[in-house]
Amino acid sequence: MIDLDSLSLKELRDLRNKVDRSISGFEERKRREALAAVEEIAREHGFTFNDLATGKSARRGTKVAVKYANPEDPTQTWTGRGRRPIWIQDALANGKTLEELEI
């Protein structure tokens, strides 16, 4: 055991710096171990750590094929998911059917 009262101010500061570095190193090792354990558990369940951390699945964000196009402006398209675009609503109001707007 070190007799702290017998150390000079410089020796005490050096000792404090060594202790601080040791604590930081210990915390970093523990953080890496915990992260590795979490990543392993996520993999076992079919996810990545990023999927769980962001709340997004790898399946989300995939593109859905376009099903409908505006005959008057083919750049206006719709997948059939979500809210109907105004051009779809207008076409239906004018007697068209969704089948007529299919690509």
Rank of each mutant, 00 (worst) to 15 (best):
M1G: 06
D3T: 09
D3E: 02
L4C: 12
S6W: 02
L7W: 03
L7P: 07
S8E: 00
L9V: 09
L12H: 06
D14P: 07
L15F: 10
N17E: 13
N17H: 09
N17D: 15
N17G: 07
V19F: 12
V19H: 08
V19E: 13
D20F: 05
D20A: 15
S22T: 14
G25E: 00
G25P: 13
F26K: 14
R31Y: 12
A36E: 11
A36W: 10
A36I: 04
A37I: 00
A37V: 04
E39M: 03
E39I: 02
I41Y: 12
E44W: 07
E44M: 12
H45F: 15
G46Q: 03
F47A: 08
F49H: 10
F49C: 04
N50A: 12
N50C: 01
L52F: 01
A53C: 09
G55S: 01
K56D: 03
K56S: 05
S57L: 10
R59I: 05
G61I: 06
G61Q: 02
T62D: 04
K63R: 14
K63W: 09
A65P: 08
V66I: 10
K67P: 05
A69M: 08
A69F: 13
P71L: 01
D73N: 13
D73Q: 02
P74L: 08
T79E: 06
G80W: 11
R81H: 11
G82P: 13
R84D: 10
I86N: 12
I86M: 14
I86K: 15
I86F: 11
W87G: 11
W87P: 05
I88Y: 03
I88P: 01
I88L: 02
I88V: 12
Q89C: 01
A91F: 07
L92H: 07
A93T: 04
G95P: 02
K96W: 11
K96S: 08
E99L: 01
E100A: 07
